[in-house]
Simulated assay, not measured.
Amino acid sequence: MPSNSAPASVGRPASAEADLFAATGRLLAGGVKFTELNAQRIATEAGVARSSFYVHFRDKVDLLIRLATQLTVPNFDTASAWRPADGVDGLTETFVNIVATFREHAAVRRALSEAAAYDDTVREYWARELDQFSEFTDRLLRIEQDAGRTPADLDVPSATEIIVLGGERAIVEHVNTRPAATDAAFAAELARIWWHGVYRRAPEH
């Protein structure tokens, strides 16, 4: 082998994980169903040996869950940074960023839904991810309620369920069915609904 080819392999093991992530993302975005993927196909797409796949991942479910953190981690960081003091404009900006992340990783979110239908590990993983959003929202609403800024008659568990589960479902549906040009308007409407319907809802008389 020519000596000048050696640098090409330097660092390859360290980059294989990123290559496998990227390859999986490309395949999913290209329309391949998660059930159609296997270690060999992903490794071939990534340009690495099949054995390299198992160096980094137990199986394709392990890969999917770790890939999904590129969606869940930034979204939780973004959502948990918002405070009611930021107002509806701040909430709108928060949703603009969350919708953008969902759109970037739409294929991975679809794969999660597909896998969750038959795989307990994926289903439990996604339930835990939603739980952390629910816990944050519940805590925030109770703080606002105790301070008198959110009406005392608001049922916090019900509001939290609607906000988290309904909001996530609405974002997924929007990203999967409408063009990116509509994202800003969607984010603004979602923010107004949450702000005026929950956080600053007028008390009943």
Score class of each variant (00 low, 15 high):
residue 12 R to D: 15
residue 17 E to N: 14
residue 18 A to T: 08
residue 25 G to Y: 01
residue 28 L to I: 01
residue 31 G to A: 04
residue 36 E to I: 07
residue 38 N to W: 05
residue 40 Q to E: 10
residue 42 I to C: 14
residue 42 I to Y: 07
residue 44 T to G: 06
residue 46 A to D: 02
residue 47 G to V: 01
residue 52 S to N: 11
residue 54 Y to K: 02
residue 57 F to M: 11
residue 58 R to I: 06
residue 60 K to H: 13
residue 61 V to G: 09
residue 62 D to S: 10
residue 62 D to I: 06
residue 63 L to P: 00
residue 64 L to M: 03
residue 66 R to C: 15
residue 67 L to W: 11
residue 67 L to G: 01
residue 70 Q to D: 03
residue 70 Q to N: 04
residue 72 T to D: 15
residue 72 T to Q: 13
residue 75 N to R: 03
residue 76 F to C: 11
residue 77 D to R: 14
residue 78 T to I: 00
residue 80 S to E: 09
residue 82 W to V: 02
residue 83 R to G: 12
residue 89 D to P: 06
residue 89 D to S: 11
residue 92 T to E: 12
residue 93 E to L: 06
residue 96 V to C: 01
residue 99 V to T: 01
residue 100 A to D: 09
residue 101 T to L: 01
residue 102 F to W: 15
residue 104 E to K: 06
residue 105 H to R: 06
residue 105 H to L: 00
residue 106 A to W: 00
residue 106 A to S: 07
residue 109 R to F: 01
residue 112 L to K: 05
residue 115 A to I: 04
residue 116 A to E: 10
residue 116 A to V: 10
residue 117 A to C: 03
residue 118 Y to W: 04
residue 120 D to N: 14
residue 122 V to Y: 02
residue 127 A to M: 07
residue 133 F to S: 04
residue 134 S to E: 10
residue 134 S to Y: 12
residue 134 S to W: 00
residue 136 F to G: 05
residue 142 R to A: 12
residue 143 I to H: 14
residue 162 I to C: 02
residue 163 I to H: 03
residue 164 V to T: 05
residue 165 L to F: 08
residue 166 G to C: 10
residue 168 E to V: 03
residue 169 R to A: 15
residue 171 I to C: 05
residue 172 V to N: 03
residue 174 H to W: 07
residue 176 N to T: 12
residue 180 A to I: 09
residue 181 A to Y: 12
residue 181 A to H: 14
residue 182 T to P: 04
residue 183 D to C: 05
residue 184 A to V: 12
residue 184 A to S: 15
residue 185 A to I: 05
residue 185 A to D: 12
residue 186 F to Q: 01
residue 187 A to F: 05
residue 191 A to K: 12
residue 192 R to P: 04
residue 194 W to A: 13
residue 195 W to K: 06
residue 196 H to F: 09
residue 199 Y to K: 04
residue 200 R to S: 11
residue 200 R to G: 13
residue 202 A to K: 07
residue 202 A to Y: 08
residue 204 E to H: 08
residue 205 H to I: 03
